[in-house]
Simulated assay, not measured.
Amino acid sequence: MKRKFVNLLFLIPFILFIFLLLFIPISDALVFQYQNSGNTLAYIPISEGETFQMKYTHSIHLSDVVESYEITNDRQIKQYELMYEDFAIGMPENASEGEIFEQKDGKYYLKNMDRRFPSFDLRVGKVRANHTVIFEGKEYPLSRVIEPGTWVRIKIERINLWQRWKGVNMLE
């Protein structure tokens, strides 16, 4: 009886340790959640100061648009640049205060942007948009892991080991 009690004394802290190891958030990730449900469809491990881009084909112009983002120290998503190829519906014609507008090699750039978001929503394109995340120079089409037409919320969130194991790491 005493031996069972001693074993139990060692087993309970071990189980608690494993539980904590699995369920305490340990790393930041760029997460793609189903609508605003909190259900993570996919993620990319990311850290403060790292950057990523969202590339898509504009529905009217049928040309590429690339939005560039950086992760801030307070887990916000900061848009710092926008690149597009056509002036027309839905595209800015000039820079806002503090921003820089440039034309280079037939493309237009808005630079020095400081637009911060806790999250942003996106409907993964069904027809032409071909929404793609660019991270560390590699392209990851969202339609590869998220059903086209799905509304996703994109945000920075701390995730735990369990979420990493059960989720879809877009980099793999």
Rank of each mutant, 00 (worst) to 15 (best):
K2T: 15
L8N: 12
I154S: 11
V168W: 01
Q35A: 06
Y84V: 15
N73L: 09
F17W: 11
V152L: 08
F117G: 02
R3Y: 14
R144E: 14
A29T: 12
I77Y: 01
K166H: 10
W162H: 04
I18R: 00
R144M: 06
E139I: 00
L20E: 12
A129Q: 06
F87N: 06
G49L: 04
L142S: 03
S143F: 09
L171D: 00
E85F: 09
K78H: 00
G38N: 09
Q53A: 10
P118H: 05
L122S: 07
F101K: 11
Y56H: 06
V133F: 14
F52G: 11
S96G: 15
G98I: 10
K126D: 11
K2N: 13
I15P: 02
T40R: 08
Y69E: 13
P141L: 00
L142R: 08
S47A: 11
S63L: 07
T72K: 07
G106F: 04
V145H: 12
G90W: 05
Y108G: 00
I46G: 14
P45C: 05
V127F: 07
M113H: 04
A42K: 09
L21M: 08
S59V: 07
S96C: 01
Y56Q: 01
P148C: 08
R75T: 11
M54F: 02
E157P: 01
V66W: 04
Y80R: 05
G137C: 02
L16W: 02
K138T: 10
N36P: 00
T150K: 05
E157I: 03
R116S: 02
R128L: 14
F135Y: 15
I159H: 03
S59F: 01
S63W: 02
E99T: 13
L82Q: 07
N36S: 10
K2I: 15
N94G: 12
K4L: 09
E85Q: 14
M113V: 01
L41D: 15
N7K: 13
L110F: 02
Y84Q: 09
R153T: 15
I77E: 00
R153L: 09
K111R: 08
